[in-house]
Design a protein around this nucleic acid. Structure first.
Lengths: 336, 336
DNA sequence: TTTATAATTGGAAACGCTTCCAAAAATTTA
DNA sequence: TAAATTTTTGGAAGCGTTTCCAATTATAAA
């Protein structure tokens, strides 16, 4: 591997000039610039990143800390992030936070420390699986972080999230608007903050519309197909006669639909279903799923850009106010 | 940030000893080891990775080059890879190869070069979107690579793949075994090697079983829901009277099922469907999907381990011969 | 006790870069 | 033309490690 010294020798200049050319800062005459570029070409010289980072303290790498890498959008979102990063000559280092978390209580911080000491200029914390306490602690000594789909008031401007409460509210409202008065719910994972918020939004909407809902109409799900199936079965067994179900995510909704169909219950004729996420498959189920589209990609893009701007002195435009949208398809029937 | 010199000073020893303790090699007396560890603790010392890599030429990072980061399993697979890496104190650097590929023809190599010069000890090439020519070229000057779901004879031992041909064959065989004689096919993306192989397996199986299939029974898909829907509609319009459809992946199969159902065609009573992948949702469609389970996770694990063993002198067990399996659910009817 | 051997130790050199500064060259001004 | 100013240049110092080797210390053998 050629080094900067080799380049300097071949070009017949000093290493300072080579460095200046590589980094495009400091003045170099056109003539020497030419010579140096020729030498770089000839030697196929690539700057050594370790040496660079050692002195500059920049790594051109962003870490992604998350526990949900395996979800469907999550991979799409990862792609969005990576794309933007690569466009600006940066890279992304991924860490699955959950893995170690199970072993010892301190593992979340441990894995973040790993990420930092591996050499990231900043970190995207994805999701709510790290405690606010831990994050604020980390943020103190390592301020270049951003939260994706999470919100902590103290570091508000570093948070990129949308209003799950309002989204849940919208979903319920849609059901009410379509004349439903007896509504069941398979929640998302209530151990997650966003799961709780959307559930609360759902509840409050019903309440504001004077639609009663008692606890036996609610089953706690966990976002999985399997749990979705079990939950709808559970609900059915209770024989409550509801006309609609709000599901905490589209996977749950799909599992519910297929289970209902198997049990000779028609969707939406007998029971209406609203999902949440607008999962890529939602448009292709039968019936296609009415759901809440959630602006993950926009959020992710804004989050990376925030980091990019702050870290590398760029000036990318950043979207705020991510819009949640109700996507009306065919799983809700108007019964009013 | 404390450096090794600070630690040495505080512990009252030389930097050599500190280095030996950190790396656990070379002999250090129990007593000094103790002093050093105390100092490390007291200063919250973390070795600087750039400095380390600069001299050791090791990065403890594996690159993942792929163009399919957004598929469903792909994210699950990524998780498997990351998990294994973290377990061994390594990290993973991700690059979406496709992004730049569109711009200029040389972009694939360019993005790989980026990855390498960013500092990866090895690279996992995921999928077939980089040409064999490029890979063999890269492998010459950068031998620590592994292919995932791809195969190039010259570097056979670095390839972790399974037999898509056989898998396609199995799918068709299952249909034949269930008495189907008029079979349609929505292929996978025939621009990919594995898409072509499974299609060929399908074709050959029919041929071996003396089941005729003419070109109008075949539509080329691209693995997406949308194309799956269009394709089945297309097939239906041709009015061929087939009793079964082999789909190039589960997404296509699901789109086909839902589209058939919408059009009052029952699955499997009127038309049987076989998918490919065993996507996590396949068990939860209605009807649940008979499909080919494909050993992605096993392959991925073996691939990382191969790299890990070679790069860091480990001795992890590596699985070979990944088993493809037919998962019989409810989308195929026996009509014999 | 002395000598031979083994274990431990400290620190200089090197890794390849950026940054800084003084010196040299080019340009402008008088 | 000379002096003042600006631009360009070379390379030493320093970033924080690992590695090596010579020196020291501990241990075993005689």
């Amino acid at each position: 591997m050629a080094t900067i010294i080799d380049v300097a020798k071949l070009a017949g200049v000093g290493i300072g000039s080579v460095s200046r050319v590589i980094n495009g800062k400091g003045s170099v005459s056109e003539k020497t610039k030419q010579k140096i570029n020729n030498a770089i070409e000839a030697l196929n010289y690539k700057p050594n990143n370790s040496a660079r980072s050692l002195v500059s303290k920049k790594f051109n790498t962003i870490g992604i800390w998350g526990t949900e890498l395996a979800g469907t959008f999550n991979s799409q979102t990862l792609r969005v992030i990576d794309h933007e990063l690569i466009n600006h000559g940066k890279h992304c280092l991924v860490t699955n936070g959950d893995i170690s978390t199970k072993d010892n209580p301190n593992a979340a911080i441990q894995s973040v420390d790993d990420l930092i000491s591996k050499g990231c200029d900043g970190i995207i914390f994805w999701g709510t699986d790290i405690s606010n306490y831990d994050i604020t602690y980390i943020e103190k000594y390592y301020p270049n972080i951003v939260l994706l789909n999470n919100h902590i008031q103290q570091i508000d401007e570093k948070c990129f999230y949308f209003d799950h409460y309002r989204a849940g509210y919208m979903a319920a409202q849609h059901l009410v608007d379509n004349g439903h008065k007896s509504i069941a719910c398979i929640t998302g994972d209530l151990k997650t903050e966003d799961g709780r918020q959307r559930h609360q939004g759902f509840l409050d909407s019903l309440n504001d519309n004077a639609v009663a809902i008692s606890p036996e109409y609610i089953v706690e799900g966990d976002y999985s197909f399997l749990k979705g199936r079990q939950s709808i079965l559970d609900l059915l067994k209770r024989d409550l006669g509801f006309s609609a179900v709000f599901c905490g995510n589209d996977k749950t909704a799909m599992a519910a639909i297929s289970t209902l169909v198997i049990n000779q219950i028609r969707v939406p004729e007998d029971i209406s279903i609203v999902g949440y996420d607008d999962y890529d498959m939602a448009a292709f189920t039968s019936p296609s799923l009415t759901t809440i589209r959630v602006p993950f990609d926009d959020m992710a893009l804004a989050a990376v850009r925030y980091l990019l701007n702050n870290l590398y002195d760029l000036n990318l435009t950043i979207q705020h106010n991510f819009q949640v949208e109700l996507i009306q398809r065919n799983s809700v029937k108007n019964i009013s």
